[in-house]
Amino acid sequence: MFAWLQTKPKETHAMDSVGWLRAAVLGANDGILSLSGLLIGISSAEASRRSITLAGVSGLIAGAMSMAAGEYVSVSSQADLEMADLNLERQEVEQHWDEEVDELTHVYVTRGLEQGLARTVAIKLMEHDALEAHARDELGINMYSVAKPLQASVSSAAAFSAGAILPLITALLSPVEHVNIILTFSTLFFLAFLGLVGAHIGGANKMRAIFRVTVLGVLALAVTSLVGKFFEVQA
């Protein structure tokens, strides 16, 4: 009668992948747009093939290193804050058990539980693992997915490089006199595809995601092209 309960597949939610998806899409989008803007600005200034290649390779390396360093510092700061909060909460649990039970009870009451049931749940969870219960339900920290600076740094650099290599290859394979126009349209295609993939994985509206990234891409590329024209030199 209830056989379907035993075979029901595990539910999957878009939020399950939001962390890595956001980082991957942000890094790849930044790589595509940053390097494309750089190369279009350089080519708009009538630069030579050698100058375009040098700028592209340098931009990819510098961008990846910058993303890695920025992400490492950012996530390290987050990890430090989380650790400080956990240490404080550990002391509170050890020194003021009853008050901490009251705090957790209040959290569950505000979420809809009756006072008596909320207190029972708070006591049971604290007896099982007091620090984990307070970290999760009071501080909003998942003990099993705390910030990992090195992992975030490497992932961010890899995502940026994966995105940046696309416009770089496009520029290297394009006739130097047509780099600008080819790079512009290929970049919009790359951005649209990235928006499509991100929306598909995240369960978001695909057309809205494509429209968003391509419109912002057009604006960014237009600005860099104008800058290149303004400083036009023979390189």
Results as ranks from 00 to 15, higher is better:
residue 166 L to H: 04
residue 177 E to Q: 12
residue 57 V to I: 08
residue 165 I to T: 02
residue 132 E to K: 02
residue 46 E to A: 11
residue 216 L to V: 13
residue 185 F to E: 07
residue 184 T to K: 11
residue 123 I to L: 06
residue 67 M to H: 11
residue 61 I to Y: 01
residue 230 F to K: 10
residue 171 A to P: 08
residue 184 T to G: 12
residue 133 A to D: 11
residue 120 T to N: 14
residue 185 F to V: 00
residue 216 L to C: 06
residue 47 A to C: 03
residue 80 D to K: 03
residue 195 G to A: 07
residue 223 V to A: 04
residue 8 K to N: 10
residue 70 G to K: 05
residue 46 E to I: 09
residue 193 F to P: 09
residue 124 K to M: 14
residue 77 S to V: 09
residue 88 L to G: 13
residue 1 M to L: 00
residue 56 G to T: 00
residue 52 I to P: 00
residue 124 K to T: 10
residue 117 L to I: 14
residue 14 A to F: 13
residue 37 G to H: 06
residue 17 S to M: 09
residue 129 D to L: 03
residue 2 F to H: 14
residue 50 R to T: 14
residue 11 E to I: 05
residue 122 A to V: 01
residue 129 D to I: 04
residue 116 G to W: 09
residue 233 V to E: 14
residue 33 L to R: 09
residue 202 G to N: 08
residue 30 D to I: 02
residue 116 G to H: 14
residue 121 V to N: 13
residue 219 L to M: 06
residue 45 A to L: 02
residue 57 V to W: 15
residue 71 E to S: 14
residue 17 S to P: 05
residue 169 I to E: 00
residue 116 G to L: 12
residue 15 M to S: 12
residue 235 A to G: 08
residue 135 A to I: 05
residue 233 V to Q: 14
residue 184 T to L: 14
residue 200 H to I: 15
residue 5 L to Q: 06
residue 54 L to W: 07
residue 153 S to W: 08
residue 19 G to H: 12
residue 180 N to F: 09
residue 119 R to Y: 07
residue 88 L to S: 00
residue 55 A to W: 00
residue 100 E to I: 07
residue 181 I to W: 06
residue 51 S to Q: 02
residue 110 T to V: 11
residue 143 M to A: 00
residue 178 H to M: 04
residue 47 A to L: 02
residue 131 L to H: 00
residue 24 A to Y: 10
residue 61 I to A: 04
residue 6 Q to M: 08
residue 128 H to T: 14
residue 139 L to S: 01
residue 174 S to P: 04
residue 189 F to T: 04
residue 47 A to K: 10
residue 2 F to R: 15
residue 113 L to S: 01
residue 92 E to G: 08
residue 8 K to E: 15
residue 195 G to P: 03
residue 201 I to T: 05
residue 30 D to L: 01
residue 49 R to N: 09
residue 167 P to S: 12
residue 211 F to E: 05
residue 85 D to E: 03
residue 118 A to F: 09
residue 230 F to V: 05
residue 8 K to V: 14
residue 74 S to M: 08
residue 214 T to A: 02
residue 9 P to I: 05
residue 156 S to N: 07
residue 63 G to N: 04
residue 215 V to D: 08
residue 148 K to N: 15
residue 15 M to T: 04
residue 81 L to I: 12
residue 51 S to N: 07
residue 53 T to I: 11
residue 191 L to E: 11
residue 182 I to L: 11
residue 185 F to H: 02
residue 14 A to E: 10
residue 117 L to N: 13
residue 41 G to Q: 04
residue 14 A to M: 08
residue 18 V to H: 02
residue 169 I to A: 02
residue 130 A to F: 13
residue 34 S to C: 12
residue 166 L to D: 00
residue 165 I to R: 04
residue 78 Q to F: 11
residue 135 A to K: 13
residue 33 L to A: 00
residue 228 G to R: 03
residue 210 I to M: 12
residue 163 G to L: 07
residue 203 G to A: 07
residue 152 A to Y: 04
residue 103 E to I: 09
residue 192 A to W: 10
residue 75 V to S: 04
residue 163 G to E: 12
residue 196 L to Y: 15
residue 173 L to Q: 03
residue 154 V to W: 05
residue 87 N to G: 12
residue 82 E to S: 13
residue 78 Q to E: 15
residue 45 A to D: 01
residue 157 A to G: 04
residue 157 A to I: 02
